[in-house]
Amino acid sequence: MPGTAQTREQTQLAATEVVAAPTASISLGEVTAVDETPAAAAPIESDPEALEIARATQPTLRHYFEIACFRAYADLKSNAVRAYLGTAWWVLEPIAYVGAYYLAFEWIMQRGGGLAIGSLITGILYWKWFASSLTTGANSIASSGGLIRLVRLPKFLLPLSASISTLLKFLFVLPVLLIFLALTGQGVSITWLALPLIVVLSFMLNTAVASLVGAIVPFVRDLRIVIDNLLLLLMFSSGVFFDLRATAGSRASLILEMNPIAAMIELYRSILIHHEWPDPAKLAFVFLSGAVTLALAWSLLRRFDGEYAKVV
């Protein structure tokens, strides 16, 4: 941070006319060292009493996580009370959803281009979770102006809360999918035990992408307009409607192998449909992609924390 000479009032208790002087940018709201001359009255960095008080009253990560979970719950509850059947829709909606795809692809389109119906629905359900995480996460900061202008809140809470909400909806869908797979001849396998790991990994990847897009949208509103088209492109390059294994060796397979969403769908299919344990290389690839994206999103959200209230 560049620093310049300051003009500063030395006696605060005497009425003073303030002299204007241009200066540079700064740290905000936290106990941080700065690269300029410390205040004459009481150097903030060297005050142990102040640091102790600051540590004692600083909101904890647990507090923020509780807020994110409560907001996610509030979102689900709000959606439920708007409908006549209320919370029953949390179960009915996934049943209707899987049923609609079953009818469309198994009966009307007759197996959707050769992919087994179980495989197809597995891919579609994960894709729907990812897409809803992305669209709600993308708007989570831009549409929370009222809140952002009133309270100081780490902005990662907003996409995280949206992502938790979509995770909870997916957790209602998952048992319906498992029952459907068991009843339509796929059978049950011990490899299903890897499902919690895959769900946690998906949640991390979804949250990372939603946070990154959510961090950018308030500054580049146009991105919100093109997200639907980008999602469409991503859907067709993620192997939702075809099996990655069938494309092995082709030019398309190279693109698909570089796409973490395609790898995620393949991981779901491998444990649920092919009854194989997850490929460690694919797990590592998805984890690294998610971690890098999350780190980038986190740094953007921290860097621009005090700017969002100016633009939303």
């Binding site: 200066t23 740290s27 905000l28 205040a39 952002i148 009133l150 209230a309």
Partner: peptide, 11 residues
Amino acid sequence: GILSPSRGRLE
């Protein structure tokens, strides 16, 4: 801490 300064020093 809702806004950050565009210029100057806030500690």
